[in-house]
Each structure stands twice: as C-alpha cells, then as structure tokens.
C-alpha cells in the first residue's frame, strides 16, 4: 500500500502518509490516497475519457499541493473523478513542473460510493521529503 492513514494528527479531518520511489510515483500514490479517502471501493476506472494537464510550482512540495488541488477542482467544477495514470515530474532551478495523463471518469452515484467529500488540501503538517531513497509526503485533507 503506497499510503497509510495517520490517526493522531486530526480528529475532524484525514491525515495520510504516502510514499514512492520517485516523485512521479509519490504523486500517483497521493492521487490514489485522495481517491481512497473519498470512495469506499476505489477500484479501477470504470469508463472515462483521457485528460492531461501540466503544472508548475516553486518547489516539489507546492507542486504536490497544486496537483492534488487540480484533482479536487475537476471533481467539483466538472463532476469528474480524475485518476492519474502517469505523472512525470521534472525539477529545475526555478522549481518543479509536471505533466499528468489521467482518466477522467464522470461521477455517478450509482457507481461511486462516496464516504466523504474532500474539500481541500491543507498546509497543516504538509511535507515532502526523500528519506533513505524513498519519497514520503504527509498530507492532511479537509473533509
């Protein structure tokens, strides 16, 4: 499992620790965690269209924030569950950028059993670090 719930951070919201061998994998895990928090049985994408987007930020950390925020935006603005299938992260002197290819699945109450809605990614204890070769992020979602 590339993510685990952390119990002692917040009682009102949901905190997770996600890991990956690369930043791309870390971002994929974070997207998977977000979906697992919201859905009872995330499973595989049922049917959808391909969607891709690019993002840029001042740091890897803020890029992860922007990435998760993008997924939340599509959920509310377009009623789409965006399920990343590839995230390519690049690091440069001015920050970090990514290109994501994803499946965008229309939200259907008949298919998707939502546990909660995630309203936002918070900056509370938000962190991205590489420890012993493993990328780890701590994320608290507002639900």
């Amino acid at each position: 499992m590339p993510f685990e719930t952390i119990e002692d951070v917040t009682s009102a919201d949901v905190a997770v620790r996600v890991t990956g061998r690369s930043t791309g994998e870390l971002f994929m895990s974070a997207g998977e965690a977000l979906r697992a928090i919201m859905l009872r049985d995330p499973g595989r994408p049922a049917a959808g269209t391909e969607l891709s987007f690019e993002l840029r930020a001042v740091s890897t950390e803020m890029l992860l924030f922007a990435f998760l925020e993008e997924l939340l935006f599509h959920k509310d603005a377009d009623s789409l569950l965006v399920i990343p299938s590839m995230v390519d992260v690049e690091h440069g002197p001015d920050g970090a950028s990514l290109r994501c290819v994803a499946i965008a699945e229309p939200i259907d109450p008949g298919i998707h059993d939502f546990i909660v809605d995630v309203k936002a990614v918070t900056m509370h204890r938000f962190s991205v670090a590489r420890v012993n070769g493993v990328w780890t992020a701590t994320i608290v979602f507002d639900v």
């Binding site: 951070v9 917040t10 009682s11 009102a12 919201d13 918070t122 900056m123 509370h124």
Partner: peptide, 9 residues
C-alpha cells in the same frame, strides 16, 4: 473543540 488544521475546530 477538537483538532483540525491551523486553528482547532
């Protein structure tokens, strides 16, 4: 009150 983020709830 209970724990949240930033301020407690």
């Amino acid at each position: 009150g209970h724990s949240g983020y930033g301020f407690p709830i």
